[in-house]
Amino acid sequence: MRTLIQLIIRNHRLVLFVLLEIIALSWVASTHSHPRGTLAKIGMEMSTSWTDAVGRLIDYKDFKKNNSSLLIENARLRTENMSYRSLSMSSRLFNSGNSWESTPAEIIRYSTSFKNNVLVANKGSLAGLQPGMGMLENGVVAGLITEVSVNHSLVLPIIHLSPNWSVRLGYDGAVGILNWSGKSVEYATLTDIPLSEHILPGDSVITSGFQGTFPSGILVGKVEELIVTEADEFQSVTIKLSANYKRIHYVEFLSKEGTPEIDSLLSKSSL
């Protein structure tokens, strides 16, 4: 025992280094998929006041551009509203009898350079946001809330290695799993598509609605190219994402009225 203690004392630098590396790497491992917990909240609160100020400066700079994009967004919403009025009760967004509500917010921090990028929005639990809510950017799928503090939310975008997104090819195509390869912020890969599925570049990829995060039919991206391996029964598809992460700023979060009820049913089924 004494020899062991002497050995540790003699190599205390190495022991300290190994100990600190273990702490750091376990921190990396615990936050690799989802940055969450108290430290994530403290970090958000610490850095947001500065980024708020920077964001305000950028706001002034981008006023003209934002105004035109808001005008386009307004026009799109107006057109969508008109088309919903003319649809029957089996409208895509309201087909379960529970309506989706949207909460507008602003992205005040983002990273696109890492493999596990995160976004921070300027609204939190005070505005009714909760973990698990989906995020739209200019009407297309952009991310998912993973952590909320009182005034801010941490969002996992599609350009994050860990989440899988359930999507569909067109309105009546096959359902597959979308994930990000970590290479380009503009592209993601859709897998598990049967070889029998006829796909063409430019086909729309939309949400399936199965995850409960988004209603079905929200645009995710367009087919860019097909990756078929002879030995495989499935094909992979490279998708050009519709969300523009390089210019992301104004977003909206979606919530559904009946979500707690569905969650309680799912938790019962897992018992």
Binding site: A24, L25, V28, I42, G43, S111, V118
Partner: peptide
Amino acid sequence: DVVLLTGGLHMAACVF
């Protein structure tokens, strides 16, 4: 890591 939300990356690199 706490401020930049990088979850241990900078700490591991800094210690090394």
